[in-house]
Amino acid sequence: MAGHAHYREAHPLVFVITHWINLICMIMLAFSGFYIHYPFFGGFMGVARGMHFVAMYVIIINLTFRIIAAFFVKTATDLGSHQVDTDIKNWLPQEKNKHQFFETVKYYIFLRKEAVISAKYGSLQKIAYLATIPLTYLMAYTGFAIYGPTMTWGLFSGGVEMVGGPMNMRIIHYFMMWVFIVFTMIHAYLANIYNFKPSKIIFAWKESE
């Protein structure tokens, strides 16, 4: 879990790039989003809105590309391994994750001593990573539902009506941003809790033993 080596097969260059794009877009989206929510200094609204829209389109295209690429790119099947298989297989729950969900939870809340057997990603990790897909699309949906030019489209006005008006949709959009912020906090924490080797490989593509 911690002492293993980190090879480039774990994160091929294409996914290092998509991860960078995700990070940059997320920072831009959260910053401009906070500004649009409450402009804490002057003279930036037009830029903030432009930034918000561009980053949103980029992250949606990036996510869609990342999903499609998962069917074609091969990644490591295990931690510290050179052996590769199609990425989507390593992304979705596997045989090795079976029966391990509660054990993983127990490990993280200190109810068991030994770390659990997992594939490249543990069960909790896979649930979190897979959940970000619908969450990101839903985030874009709630954004379009409060965006002037599209909020009257049937697809979006139906959702606005369902949640009881545009103000409620705005609040949902705002809270969902916090879901992403908390996700990023936990993600960064768990990835680097043992050492910074995972960051070296995902950001700088540098292998470590």
């Binding site: 911690a2 002492g3 391990q100 054990e103 068991r112 001593k113 030994e114 770390a115 659990v116």
Partner: peptide, 17 residues
């Protein structure tokens, strides 16, 4: 809990299940 170190925590060799 002593999990953070050069070798990290011990990992199970067989799933509990």
């Amino acid at each position: 809990a002593g999990r953070i170190g050069p070798d990290g925590p011990p990992t199970e060799t067989v799933k509990k299940h």
